[in-house]
Nucleic acid binder design. Structure first.
Lengths: 251, 251
DNA sequence: CGGGTCGTTGAGGTCAGTCAAACAGAGTGG
DNA sequence: CCACTCTGTTTGACTGACCTCAACGACCCG
């Protein structure tokens, strides 16, 4: 019971950050939000063969993963707390799965997504939902640029900065510090690098004094310098969250 | 006047392929579709600083292009006739522009997009629109996999095959032949390769007897073999168009 | 203690980028 | 008609970024 409340609350929080919700919208969300599900790091979160559901990440990190016939894996989109995981087009190829990158708690948004699609939702909810999707799309495009045009070093710094801004938006940073519970293997799979090379790149960022990285946490030492050398435009992401109530307490 | 009709007709055709339109939907489209615009190869199609409009490509090829501070360019999404160009998230960074890859005729879909967003549209139109957007998203993800996980050779073959299926869907192929009016420079910018290497890769595909490429046209000699060696899953794209009236006459 | 994952390091190979130059075709102007 | 330019393709030689293979250390947990 506690969990259901948490999911609803987290969802309202997340959407409200994108667009101020009317109380009617909050009521709708409370009615429709289902129970949460827990997964362990590495678990697949969709039944094999079924199309991906839309899952709100309540706590932890998740991603969509594409597996090639020969076993190569590509992490397509990372989703941190407050973001949505598991939206793909209709081909819904069986090679694409939603996977838990850490131990994770998620909530199924299928019903809400359907409601939004059918337009039976509060206008403020629609607006928030749309903004959220637009941001996700922008994030996709940024990653296309990363993979297509940037060197390994730029790519890595660039991604870290985006994750930092997204974390900040979700109220998950403290100063220049950000939790980053991903393994280097996972980072490499997202960045299109070998794990060995990803490791070396991270070390170089450290050596150059741009970041400190240790025990699932990254501290940015020179944000502006890193942004410059990584071709990242700071401030692109909607800035600081409007205001954060003492909410985001860890479950 | 002739042109306006063409744009409307092309739009109806394109949407109808995704989801059978009711006649009410067609009426709505006829009311809202604006005049077409012509651009020359290389032109930017949005006024600088303004957010990208949604443009239906009536004839020719277009793309969204991201330019890095140091001048590197990345073609994000290709749009061929019947597809939409110019959708990006709200950051709408000034570095992203809609560009004509060939001489091109487009129609502004802003009004229709707004109508769809506000839900004042026929249900079949909404469904068609949604399917179209989903396909575009799926295409984005495929390209992420290409750039992140595939070698230059696989990447190129894979892209060609996707373009082939998309062309076929739009009724623009004849047998195993497809028009491909892109320069190798443009292909390279989309594939994240140098033009020199893109050229060598294309030659290798030719040498291996997988394709014939010449004068803006590609002929696939061994579709299945190419798909296998390029990690492309044939048939992922909605198959042949329902039926093509003698419509797609070149303007 | 053994076995697991994760991070780290070294040596060597290869894929793909850079630089440079030459060639082909289309359009232009004399 | 022939230079002439411009864009696009092609080729060669060289360089370097990144990958592969392999092994090792740190840490956690049973």
């Amino acid at each position: 019971m506690r969990r259901v409340l948490n999911a609803t609350f987290c969802l309202i929080q997340a959407l409200d950050r994108h667009h101020r919700l009317a109380s009617e919208a909050e009521a709708e969300l409370e009615m429709l939000s289902g129970p949460t599900e827990d997964y362990l790091s590495g678990d697949y979160m969709n039944a094999p063969g079924t199309p991906l559901r839309r899952l709100l990440v309540v706590a932890g990190w998740a991603a969509e993963q594409h597996t090639l016939p020969d076993g190569r894996k590509q992490l397509l989109r990372l989703a941190l707390a407050g973001e949505v995981c598991g939206v793909v087009g209709p081909p819904s190829e069986s090679r694409t799965q939603a996977v838990a990158l850490t131990d994770v708690t998620v909530a199924d948004l299928s019903k809400i997504a359907a409601m939004v699609r059918e337009r039976h939702a509060d206008p403020t909810l629609l607006a928030a939902w749309r903004t959220m999707e637009a941001l996700r799309q922008a994030s996709d495009l940024r990653h296309l640029v990363r993979l297509g045009s940037l060197s390994a070093l730029e790519r890595t710094g660039n991604l870290l900065l985006e994750l930092y801004e997204r974390s900040a938006f979700a109220g998950l940073t403290r100063g220049a510090a950000m939790r980053l519970p991903l393994t280097q293997v996972q980072l490499a799979e997202h960045l299109g690098l070998s794990t060995v090379h990803a490791n070396r790149v991270i070390q170089q960022l450290r050596r150059e004094g741009l970041i400190e990285a240790q025990s699932r946490q990254v501290v940015f030492r020179q944000l502006a310098a890193l942004a410059l050398s990584s071709c990242y435009e700071l401030g692109t992401y909607p800035a600081a969250p409007p205001f954060q109530s003492p909410s985001q307490v860890r479950a």
